[in-house]
Simulated scan of single mutants.
Amino acid sequence: MGAALQKHDVFQAIADPTRRKLLRLLADKEMPVTVISRHFPMSRTAVSKHLRILSEAGLVREQKVGREKRYRLQPEPLLELKQWLSFYERFWDNKIAMLKNFVENEEINALSLVVPERDERKSTE
């Protein structure tokens, strides 16, 4: 039932760099929108719209405290992203291993090409 109410999924929510920065900002502590908006060169209304998208994706929880809403990161939905990315790690690991092999072979080849220079002065004396 909760998924049916979700207007945005995790992938849509994190697609925007501003929303990724919001998540990072909210990772350590709960904050009201007035404090959050000080970190961005945009209006409080624009920040609120980004927070609403994150909230709809389940990435941010809002809690009413007095007259203000406070926001906090809810990291659980990020597990879906982690699981999706983990499939592709094997390609990154393979590329990193290939790069390591290439660099090590280049270093060996470079060392074998180093030939000590002759001192030309000695040969002319």
Score class of each variant (00 low, 15 high):
residue 94 N to Q: 10
residue 3 A to F: 12
residue 105 N to P: 06
residue 73 L to F: 13
residue 103 V to K: 03
residue 107 E to S: 09
residue 123 S to N: 08
residue 69 K to Q: 14
residue 41 P to Q: 03
residue 108 I to K: 10
residue 125 E to M: 06
residue 113 L to F: 10
residue 97 A to E: 11
residue 37 S to F: 02
residue 32 P to A: 10
residue 81 L to N: 07
residue 54 L to F: 12
residue 68 E to D: 14
residue 39 H to L: 07
residue 88 Y to T: 03
residue 39 H to W: 12
residue 45 T to G: 13
residue 95 K to V: 03
residue 38 R to V: 08
residue 75 P to N: 06
residue 76 E to K: 10
residue 63 Q to K: 13
residue 92 W to L: 11
residue 91 F to L: 09
residue 102 F to H: 08
residue 112 S to F: 12
residue 20 R to Y: 02
residue 23 L to Q: 05
residue 122 K to H: 14
residue 52 R to D: 11
residue 22 L to P: 00
residue 103 V to I: 14
residue 56 E to C: 03
residue 48 S to E: 11
residue 57 A to F: 03
residue 42 M to F: 12
residue 83 Q to D: 11
residue 85 L to M: 05
residue 104 E to K: 13
residue 92 W to P: 00
residue 66 G to I: 04
residue 94 N to G: 05
residue 30 E to T: 04
residue 124 T to Q: 12
residue 46 A to I: 04
residue 33 V to T: 15
residue 40 F to I: 02
residue 19 R to Y: 04
residue 43 S to D: 06
residue 123 S to P: 08
residue 69 K to N: 12
residue 78 L to Q: 11
residue 104 E to M: 09
residue 47 V to N: 01
residue 14 I to A: 03
residue 18 T to H: 06
residue 61 R to M: 15
residue 36 I to W: 00
residue 73 L to T: 01
residue 5 L to P: 00
residue 49 K to N: 10
residue 23 L to D: 01
residue 117 E to L: 15
residue 71 Y to L: 03
residue 114 V to E: 13
residue 21 K to A: 14
residue 2 G to Q: 14
residue 40 F to K: 02
residue 104 E to N: 12
residue 93 D to M: 05
residue 35 V to H: 12
residue 39 H to T: 07
residue 8 H to A: 14
residue 93 D to T: 00
residue 78 L to T: 01
residue 82 K to V: 11
residue 110 A to T: 09
residue 38 R to M: 14
residue 28 D to G: 15
residue 69 K to E: 06
residue 71 Y to C: 12
residue 107 E to I: 15
residue 9 D to C: 10
residue 98 M to R: 09
residue 123 S to R: 14
residue 39 H to I: 05
residue 66 G to C: 00
residue 113 L to D: 11
residue 16 D to Q: 03
residue 117 E to W: 06
residue 88 Y to Q: 08
residue 6 Q to D: 09
residue 125 E to G: 13
residue 113 L to V: 05
residue 33 V to G: 04
residue 90 R to A: 10
residue 77 P to W: 03
residue 47 V to T: 07
residue 65 V to G: 07
residue 45 T to I: 04
residue 50 H to E: 03
residue 37 S to G: 07
residue 53 I to T: 04
residue 61 R to K: 11
